[in-house]
Nucleic acid binder design. Structure first.
Lengths: 190, 190
DNA sequence: TTAAAAACTTGAACTACTTCAAGAAATTCA
DNA sequence: TGAATTTCTTGAAGTAGTTCAAGTTTTTAA
């Protein structure tokens, strides 16, 4: 079976066999254990990650010392801190595996040379980033217009399999309410 | 003086003189009057907009009939609905001028042919989109971790000139609190 | 230059959520 | 398997914000 990243790229652009060879020679799978971090706050992020299997999250530790999940990434999603990556500034985020995962980690230097060798890859990254940006715009809309209960039901309706996969308290913080309130929503006690 | 879009592009990639000619022949400035819409909810968005002068916003109308501003775009920013653009689905958003503005509107077909003629432009759009995405990740962090008052002061400290430029009620909704509460924050009555 | 429209302010009443504390249930792994 | 850890639940008390309604100030445009 072909590398799932290559399959994903082929959904957006066409690749010459020679491009596929180049990609395959550069990309390797790394296994990340549940709870392991691939980025911590304060570090400069020099790598972008493609999730082949498993689930990663981006989170912060807030002023009360509590974790807040800002983003999840499952199979076929990219995750990184683009601001740290592009501006060479310390990251504000943690990136962590929440399941035993397999990711393709592409270092900035490796990516730069790949983009030179396969210029068409710029197009792939442009399109997937624009689509993610669009999804984030919708997310902000939901955060702004729905109540906590509506956000929970909406998420549950659209991603029922995903809801089973992550701890409820992480999903609660991703939807911007407390774990206790989530319990009450689920119990119908609101 | 050269087209401000071309100057912006040259910050990220190099352009051949012939590329500049191609760009200049394709791009034209349109004037948008204050309050005029360039996209309305339900329409399919087939255009991306670069703000040359003035200020645009993305907003929605919530279930109570009130406007909520989700995004601003001033000089040298792009604004569009990427989800509607890429997926050919009706937009959830309005795009409107909040000052008399000049934008470069690039239609999808025009953009596609430009990207074929000047493949390096893919790189430009990839980079600016990734940087915007990074900025949006930070915005979500601020929304999640700061109180209304902290968000107001933080925004005021970082973008004092901008605060002068837009009506307070739009800024209040962008920061996700009510116009009345903003008045109280400013008066020190919280 | 004035009338109309848009934007801002204020206080009082309300509410959707948080916080805390403690216990119960589920999961992990030695 | 069973002890430790992690996750989930519950109720009571508190609060950061909203909503409403009315008045004031500022801006717009004929």
């Amino acid at each position: 079976m072909q590398n799932s990243l290559i399959l994903h790229i082929k959904k957006f652009i066409s690749l010459e066999p020679s491009d596929i060879d180049k990609l395959e020679s550069c990309l390797e799978l790394s296994k990340i254990k549940k709870k392991e971090h691939i980025l911590e706050e304060g570090q400069i992020c020099n790598t972008i990650y493609f999730v082949v299997r498993g689930c990663m999250r981006q989170y912060i530790i807030n002023s009360k010392g509590a974790e807040q999940t800002l983003q999840f990434a499952i199979e076929n999603w990219w995750i990184t801190d683009y601001l740290s990556y592009h501006n060479h500034i310390p990251s504000s985020f943690y990136l962590q595996a929440i399941e035993n995962s397999e990711v393709i980690a592409i270092d900035k230097n490796v990516l730069e040379s790949l983009l030179i060798e396969i210029p068409n890859l710029e197009r792939y990254f442009r399109i997937v980033t624009q689509k993610s940006f669009g999804a984030t715009q919708m997310r902000i809309k939901y955060l702004f217009t729905m109540s906590a209960e509506e956000r929970y039901h909406h998420f549950n309706d659209h991603f029922p399999e995903f809801v089973q996969r992550v701890p409820q308290y992480m999903l609660a913080s991703y939807l911007d309410f407390s774990a206790e309130f989530m319990s009450k929503i689920r119990a119908g006690k609101v």
